[in-house]
């Protein structure tokens, strides 16, 4: 059962002026429930524009979007309900924080959904625990927190709405490696705990390779491919042609293979590489042929 489906959607910015730009060009896609999709593409490849169609923030210039088999924009009054179903965390979401306390800020989304106070309180505490915000932090002003903490609060604000689909646009942008790993693992945890569909937009293959079950590659507004990481990374040459690199470790393994060493070609995280190499060392000799 597909939770997100698009039919030939295109989106054109500033049509009829010299600034005209086709950001999304005839994209057809079906995303099944429960996937953790990595959305990858160059800056300006249309990935951010594409995801804004999924919760009805942008209306496609052409084509149709379906969420849970319901057509978007068929009934405008349903848009708010759709936006609660498809949660979108924007790039640099910490810039949208506005409330006096972290608690109130996370409550903003659930409150807009019209939930009662007890339910809101439960959700806030739930998500706060999930993203690693301490009780004491809930009472602080969001403007006192560090960058990484702010980011987690902002993500929690959307997670607390318990959307069926959670979309995160570059959630690790501008964070240090530690912060990046924290965010990535909390996304993975969220996906495992709730079993919801998650879309993770990124331009880092490494990030996506760590967590995704499916990868969607955009190239200059078009859908390049949508497949499992194995299938996508197998097309290393093509990916390089459109300016995207497969993860470093996969490149190492591809080279090893080119040198005539028999290694599996579905290695795209360092952890997996370690596993593979260790088992090869144990068996011994296999790497010699």
């Amino acid at each position: 059962m597909s939770v997100i489906k698009t039919e030939n959607i295109s989106y054109i910015y500033s049509d009829g002026t010299p600034f005209r730009k086709v950001a999304v060009d005839n994209v057809n896609i079906e995303i099944n429930e429960g996937e953790l999709v990595g959305v990858i593409g160059h800056t300006g490849s249309g990935k951010s524009t594409l995801i804004q169609h999924f919760n009805g923030l942008l209306k496609p210039s052409e084509g149709k979007v379906f969420i849970d088999s319901e057509e978007l924009w068929a009934d405008k009054s349903r848009l708010k309900a759709i936006r609660c179903k498809v949660g979108l965390v924007f790039q640099y979401p910490e810039y949208q924080l506005f409330e006096e306390t972290v608690y109130k800020d996370i409550a903003f989304g659930p409150k807009n959904m019209g939930l009662d106070d007890a339910e809101i309180d439960k959700r806030i505490r739930d998500t706060a625990r999930l993203v690693g915000i301490s009780e004491e932090m809930l009472g602080k002003s969001p403007f006192e927190l560090s960058g990484g903490q702010k980011r987690r609060v902002a993500i929690a604000g959307v997670m607390a709405m318990e959307p069926k689909v959670l979309i995160l646009d570059e959630p690790t942008a501008g964070l240090d490696p530690k912060g990046r790993n924290q965010i990535l693992s909390l996304i993975k945890e969220y996906h495992e705990e709730k079993g919801n569909t998650v879309l993770l937009v990124s331009h880092s293959m490494e990030d996506v390779a760590k967590v995704a079950t499916k990868i969607l590659v955009m190239n200059s507004g078009r859908l390049f491919c949508y497949d499992t990481p194995d299938e996508v990374f197998r097309r290393a040459k093509e990916l390089e042609e459109i300016g995207l690199a497969v993860p470093q470790i996969t490149r190492v393994f591809n080279r090893l293979k080119a040198e005539g060493i028999s290694v599996p070609d579905n290695v795209y995280t360092v952890d997996r590489a370690e596993e593979v190499l260790l088992s090869m060392l144990k068996q011994g000799g296999e790497a010699d042929d």
Binding site: N55, K80, L88, F90, Y95, Q96, F108, N112, V158, M161
Partner: peptide, 27 residues
């Protein structure tokens, strides 16, 4: 951008009374 982000969190800028709409602008 901020309006889109708050809309994604269920904020409503288009309906409601004038006072409610003014309040909706705080975020």
């Amino acid at each position: 951008k901020i309006m889109s982000a708050q809309k994604a969190r269920g904020a409503d800028f288009e309906t409601g009374s004038l006072i409610n709409r003014a309040k909706a602008l705080v975020p």
